[in-house]
Design a protein around this nucleic acid. Sequence first.
DNA 1: CTGAGAATTTGATTTTTATCAAGGTAGGGT
DNA 2: ACCCTACCTTGATAAAAATCAAATTCTCAG
Lengths: 186, 186
Amino acid sequence: MIKTGLFENIAEVSDEARNAFIGYLEEIEAEKGYKLENAGEVSNYLFYIAQGSARSFYIRDNRDITVSFSLEGEFVTAMHSFITRSPSYETIETLEKSLLYRISYENLQRCFQEFQDLERVYRIILEKYYIALEEQMIFSKFKSAKERYLELMEKKPKIIQRASVGHIASFLDMTIETLSRVRSKI
Amino acid sequence: MIKTGLFENIAEVSDEARNAFIGYLEEIEAEKGYKLENAGEVSNYLFYIAQGSARSFYIRDNRDITVSFSLEGEFVTAMHSFITRSPSYETIETLEKSLLYRISYENLQRCFQEFQDLERVYRIILEKYYIALEEQMIFSKFKSAKERYLELMEKKPKIIQRASVGHIASFLDMTIETLSRVRSKI
DNA sequence: CTGAGAATTTGATTTTTATCAAGGTAGGGT
DNA sequence: ACCCTACCTTGATAAAAATCAAATTCTCAG
């Protein structure tokens, strides 16, 4: 059952807590381009991607800049907005037809009040996401345009298939032209 | 009292939980250059900087690359190592004489087992650090060398005073020479 | 106070990447 | 199938930053 995939690899959660959490989940069958969050609005949901993929992006100076890609088995939300309850600068959209589960901010807080297990699971997930972000940041400090692309190919090959050159280029901090040249010389 | 500064701005913690936590803290008076963590070793402590400052860096290809600066009132540890219990790639050292408090990994976990309050506080701190890291990452995507320097000056002016040009340059992802030229043209 | 070594600045040159400008290609809608 | 529009590639040039190489300034141990 897919919903329980959320808990894979995560330490012992009581059946009670698990069922409470699952009870709050809403299933969403999203087409390609479905907006999970919109810039300017407060992010009200934490999403889990059961199938599919998504990207988060900013619009600035009329440019669309991708800041992250999320794949199956990952959680995604506009973190800053979700946590601070202030309007989001970022928009999140699916890259393909996707199956999502979402829980609202209020219900998530309710879960934390009721079940320490769930707060712990969330804390551990947050830790993992934190160190993933740290690694991404550090790796980008050490690498050239070509190396960044090769690393992406190795670590998240699925993105190369799903996302457009423009999305990948802005994510890797280079122009579309540079990415195109990098790809042609592999 | 300085120790309680740790809890500033953080939601309700019971006296009991607070006292348990404080009971585990060790005070450390560190000279400039004191190593909080060493590359190659497992990070065993979460540090709180009561006074002073620190920097985290990696050595790669014989180059010393600063990945973050931490100031008074902030927590710092080699997150990846602390969380995964595997050897750290990063070293953390004080930039000046500093007053630190530290809690061991084991005792922190003990606190979480005993007091849900503390796990919540930790979770909220982690959220704040996560979004700070996200912001840092996003901002670096939009800015030139000069703009990155100006932003650092504005947001963390203390670092400009305390850290060397080499530390600042690698943190801002530019060479020492580029930083020197940027500074001369302000 | 002094000198050696380290850190920083300045200058010349090269490399990398962005920008500007055409062309080419692929896929969806009629 | 065919056009239209988006997207992608390629080429020429410009800009930004890195690298290499001195020269200068700072620091602190003796």
